[in-house]
Amino acid sequence: MSLPATDPSAHNSSRAPEPVGLYPHARRVGNLLFLSGVGPRQRGQKHVPGVELDEDGNILRYDFESQCHAVFQNVRYIVEEAGASWEDIVDVTVFLTNMRDDFHTYNRLYAQYFGTSQPCRTTVEINRLPTPIAIELKCIAWVGER
């Protein structure tokens, strides 16, 4: 079964970066909001914050901390425009391309952003992401009255 192109359960943020494929930023099912993977790119830009590429598009250097801040901001944009708040995020899956070097920084920043709400969390290392980024988040949020 396919969903109509104007499916009211699909949500796209006007502030988060455009999806790199055919998918919405989020989809609401009942009182749950399921976010697609969110990276650190900024809307209308191909450049990734904190990433330096060579002429072939390979990553030379990246500032992981700036990517984390950008990802968290993009998640906030999507969640808030869909009618939830940061504190309504109940589950976070994070994909890192370099767990050994970046996990400590991620864990520190995660504690700053999620210190009071403490959603469930899973962190996995992957070989690469579809764009030259070092982190991507997939989240579930609660939308509506509690």
Rank of each mutant, 00 (worst) to 15 (best):
G83R: 11
L137H: 07
R128S: 15
F95I: 11
Q73M: 10
D102S: 11
T97F: 10
V94I: 15
F114P: 06
N107I: 04
F103E: 02
L137K: 00
E81P: 08
D91G: 14
N74K: 02
R121M: 02
V92C: 14
Q112S: 15
E125N: 13
W86Y: 13
H104M: 09
I89C: 07
Q112Y: 15
S117F: 00
I89L: 11
D102M: 08
Y77R: 04
L109T: 09
Y110L: 13
T105W: 04
R100M: 03
T122I: 10
T116D: 03
V90N: 07
D88Y: 12
Q112R: 14
A111W: 14
C120H: 07
M99D: 03
A82I: 13
I133F: 04
D102Q: 07
R76N: 07
E87G: 10
D88S: 15
I89P: 03
G83Y: 08
L137W: 07
Y77S: 01
F72Y: 01
R121E: 00
A111I: 14
T93G: 10
H104T: 12
V71A: 05
V75L: 05
N98I: 08
I135E: 00
N98Y: 09
V94F: 06
V75C: 01
V94H: 04
S117W: 02
T116M: 08
D91M: 15
T93M: 10
R100G: 01
T123N: 10
A111Y: 12
T116W: 06
R108H: 13
D88W: 11
E81N: 14
P119Y: 05
T97N: 04
R100H: 08
N98D: 08
N127C: 12
I78G: 00
L96Q: 03
D88T: 12
R121C: 03
P132Q: 06
D102H: 12
G115R: 10
S85H: 13
F95Y: 13
Q118V: 10
L109I: 15
R76G: 04
A84T: 08
I78V: 04
F72K: 01
F95D: 01
A134N: 03
V90W: 04
V94M: 12
Q73P: 06
Q112T: 13
L96I: 10
T131D: 09
G83Q: 09
Y113P: 08
F72C: 03
V75P: 00
V75E: 01
S85W: 13
E136N: 06
I133N: 01
Y113S: 13
R100F: 00
T116P: 03
Q118F: 05
L96H: 07
D101C: 08
S85N: 12
D91P: 13
W86I: 11
N98F: 09
T123L: 12
S85Y: 12
P119E: 04
